[in-house]
Simulated scan of single mutants.
Amino acid sequence: MKNKIATYSLAHHKSLFTDINNNKDYFYVQAKDHPYISEPYRAESYAIEFLRKGSIVMQTRLKKVVVHAPAIITLGPSVIRSFTKDGDEILIDIIFFKPQFFLHNQANVFFLSQYEFFDNSEMHVFNLEKKNKLKFEQIFSLLRQSLDNNSNHQPSILRGYLYILIYELDFIKQTILTETTQNSLFEKFKEILFKDFLHQRSVQYYADALNVTRKYLSEVIKNNSGKTASDWIEDIVVLEAKVLLQNKDLTINQISDILNFPNQSTFGRFFKKATEISPLEYRRKNI
């Protein structure tokens, strides 16, 4: 199903930052501005971003955060994301790369998927202490220099620096104490929700999956997030609907089927109640 969802191609990402276009499966940019895309979307490439100065508002799935420099942001292709402006001054380095580029000559085709920070909304942002900031400044500087030198070994050198980046980020993740104020039941609910929401919209289903009563689950989620379990289910369905509606190759009826509504009319009523506009109106505004 995922290959039916509209994504931002690597070429489209290039066009947002520069007029230069090529056929390479990777792209590096240092920018003093950011293409703030407030509507949710996915991308075909991975991205590792080094926010050197300023701040930016990022939403991944249903989690919205203000990211302050210095910080690293990691995003995998499957992640629904959007960005909005937080301040005027920003400096950010971004390396985009297609999975097939990175996995060239890599025996383990699941190498990238084993790192949760590319896909898990709780792990996308690494706030950097001084020593780590200096380290990533050096790595990104070397990475940029390698791309300025258009040698035959450029792809291999770039892959080498990407391995270093991933290993360094994994080391930081492993050394961070997992202190969280969020209830573990709430975290488990979100994990199951993001996996099963296309087929399961009943709070009772998630309560059963977590071996608790519906009432207790609802109380925990409300206490931890201020929203009900039903709100969480509705919000993730709406978010997925918005991404699908931006794919002009899918009819609204097909989208209704993908989202497992009994018919297009039911989907239309659901979407309009949640967003105050019809699916067709949303599509016209965003295509």
Results as ranks from 00 to 15, higher is better:
residue 2 K to H: 14
residue 2 K to L: 11
residue 10 L to E: 02
residue 10 L to H: 01
residue 11 A to D: 10
residue 12 H to L: 15
residue 16 L to I: 04
residue 21 N to I: 10
residue 22 N to H: 06
residue 23 N to A: 10
residue 23 N to W: 03
residue 23 N to E: 13
residue 25 D to I: 01
residue 28 Y to V: 01
residue 31 A to C: 02
residue 35 P to S: 07
residue 37 I to Q: 14
residue 37 I to G: 08
residue 40 P to N: 01
residue 41 Y to L: 09
residue 45 S to H: 02
residue 47 A to H: 01
residue 50 F to I: 01
residue 52 R to K: 14
residue 53 K to C: 02
residue 60 T to D: 14
residue 66 V to W: 03
residue 77 P to I: 09
residue 84 T to Q: 08
residue 85 K to D: 02
residue 87 G to C: 12
residue 87 G to E: 13
residue 89 E to G: 08
residue 90 I to P: 01
residue 92 I to S: 07
residue 94 I to S: 11
residue 95 I to K: 05
residue 96 F to N: 06
residue 104 H to N: 15
residue 106 Q to M: 07
residue 107 A to I: 06
residue 108 N to F: 03
residue 110 F to I: 10
residue 112 L to P: 08
residue 113 S to C: 06
residue 115 Y to F: 15
residue 118 F to L: 06
residue 118 F to T: 05
residue 119 D to N: 13
residue 122 E to D: 12
residue 124 H to Q: 14
residue 130 K to V: 12
residue 132 N to R: 02
residue 133 K to L: 04
residue 135 K to F: 12
residue 138 Q to L: 15
residue 139 I to V: 06
residue 139 I to T: 09
residue 139 I to N: 04
residue 141 S to M: 12
residue 142 L to W: 12
residue 144 R to L: 05
residue 144 R to I: 05
residue 146 S to A: 06
residue 150 N to M: 02
residue 151 S to P: 00
residue 154 Q to W: 02
residue 155 P to E: 03
residue 156 S to A: 15
residue 160 G to K: 06
residue 161 Y to T: 03
residue 165 L to W: 05
residue 170 D to P: 06
residue 171 F to W: 13
residue 176 I to S: 12
residue 178 T to Y: 12
residue 179 E to F: 14
residue 182 Q to D: 14
residue 182 Q to A: 12
residue 183 N to Q: 04
residue 186 F to L: 04
residue 189 F to P: 00
residue 193 L to T: 00
residue 193 L to M: 01
residue 195 K to H: 09
residue 198 L to P: 03
residue 199 H to W: 05
residue 200 Q to I: 01
residue 200 Q to R: 11
residue 203 V to Y: 00
residue 213 T to S: 12
residue 226 G to P: 02
residue 230 S to M: 10
residue 230 S to W: 03
residue 231 D to A: 09
residue 232 W to L: 12
residue 233 I to Q: 07
residue 234 E to G: 07
residue 240 E to C: 04
residue 242 K to Y: 08
residue 244 L to A: 12
residue 245 L to C: 05
residue 245 L to T: 04
residue 248 K to E: 14
residue 250 L to H: 07
residue 253 N to H: 09
residue 255 I to T: 02
residue 259 L to N: 04
residue 261 F to L: 04
residue 263 N to G: 01
residue 269 R to G: 09
residue 274 A to M: 14
residue 277 I to T: 11
residue 278 S to M: 00
residue 282 Y to V: 02
residue 283 R to T: 00
residue 284 R to M: 11
residue 285 K to S: 13
